[in-house]
């Protein structure tokens, strides 16, 4: 900036023909530097995003408008036929039902348990790091390994859980035949893996809560529970929004656990636990080998996730503005 202003101020009379040009170039470069550089500095991300984010998205849309065979490749343009085909399939709607059911059965208890666990870990425990690392251990286990172990536990005839149920005089649960039981079993695997992860995120947020708030609350005579509901939870709201949004994205894309839940990975003989991503895989890589239809499902799923994400976001934000009016007003100003 400084150089460009001095150049402007210097009298042009004594300069030769070449000089103003050189100054002009420098000027131009300087102006570009000021104007373009910031964009240049952030461009690597956007270039990457365009290559691995936007382009696949657009290309998937392109594929979804064509007949497209997995091995055979591009076929003729069919417009929205793939979308109408998919929307007419009973299995698609079943997959959607299963996905939402598993998502709700996993995400809701997962977040509640994670907050409670984090509150416990936030207290003064002996061997604090040990407990904190302990909750993260299941997260380190590969999801496929988790599924293999759990699918043995949840065996219909020879599973350990049914054996225990029989021991205490209860009937076996048909984990692979009933819709809701299979969803519960899969949600258990998901929760096993993700509770610890979310707990640590909540724990980190809890430790950022100013301790003097708690001291003040104690002086006012607030009990533990009251401190938790009136200080901890309100202060955690941004983190809760973050966790809700990420678990929405993850939950609606669930694939590993249901796919590994039985020996065939097709969501059960009556598609009891077929999820949308598994349906996508089945269309693209299964018997039909139709990339076009799979791409259509991918786009429908994308739109659903965006919609659910927005709904979740607005709900969680409204809760926070409703019960914490002060911070809301402050943000507006």
């Amino acid at each position: 900036m400084a150089t460009s202003t001095t150049n402007l101020d210097s009298p042009p009379v004594r300069k030769t023909d070449r000089d103003p040009r050189r100054v002009g170039l420098r000027q131009k470069l300087g102006r570009w530097d000021v104007k373009l550089s910031p964009y240049l500095y952030i461009s690597p991300f956007f270039i990457l995003f365009a290559v691995v984010g936007l382009f696949p998205l657009a290309y998937t849309a392109y594929v979804s408008m064509h007949q497209w065979h997995l091995i055979g490749g591009e076929g003729k343009f069919v417009g929205l036929d793939n979308f109408t085909f998919v929307l007419q399939q009973a299995n698609f709607w079943r997959a959607l039902r299963n996905t939402f059911s598993i998502f709700l059965l996993s995400s809701v208890p997962q977040i509640i348990i994670a907050i409670l666990l984090a509150a416990v870990l936030d207290a003064n425990l002996r061997a604090r790091s040990f407990w904190r690392m302990g909750v993260l251990l299941p997260y380190v286990v590969a999801p496929v390994a988790v599924s293999l172990i759990f699918s043995k536990l949840f065996g219909d005839q020879s599973g350990m859980i049914n054996a225990l149920l029989n021991k205490i005089g209860l009937d076996s649960i048909r984990w692979h035949a009933d819709v809701l039981s299979s969803h519960l079993a899969i949600a258990t695997m998901v929760n096993f893996r993700w509770i610890g992860y979310n707990t640590l995120i909540f724990l980190a947020a809890m430790q950022a809560v100013p301790r003097d708030l708690y001291e003040a609350a104690i002086l006012d005579g607030a009990a533990r529970l009251r401190q938790f509901t009136s200080i901890t939870v309100p202060m955690l709201r941004p983190t809760i929004i973050f966790v809700v949004v990420t678990s929405t994205i993850g939950g609606l894309q669930i694939f590993d656990e249901p796919r590994m839940y039985d020996q065939f990975g097709q969501g059960g003989s009556d598609r009891q636990w077929l999820t949308v991503t598994m349906y996508l895989y089945e269309l693209g890589w299964g018997s039909q080998k139709s990339f076009g239809r799979a791409a259509a499902v991918a786009w429908i799923l994308f739109l659903i996730i965006v919609a659910v994400g927005i709904i979740n976001f607005s709900i969680t934000r409204r809760i926070s503005t409703d019960s914490a009016p002060k911070s809301g007003r402050k943000a507006k100003r």
């Binding site: 699918s151 065996g155 020879s158 039985d262």
Partner: peptide, 11 residues
């Protein structure tokens, strides 16, 4: 039993 299922193997 579903052939190849864990139940089948265990049986």
């Amino acid at each position: 039993l579903g052939q190849w299922s864990p139940d089948w193997t265990a049986s």
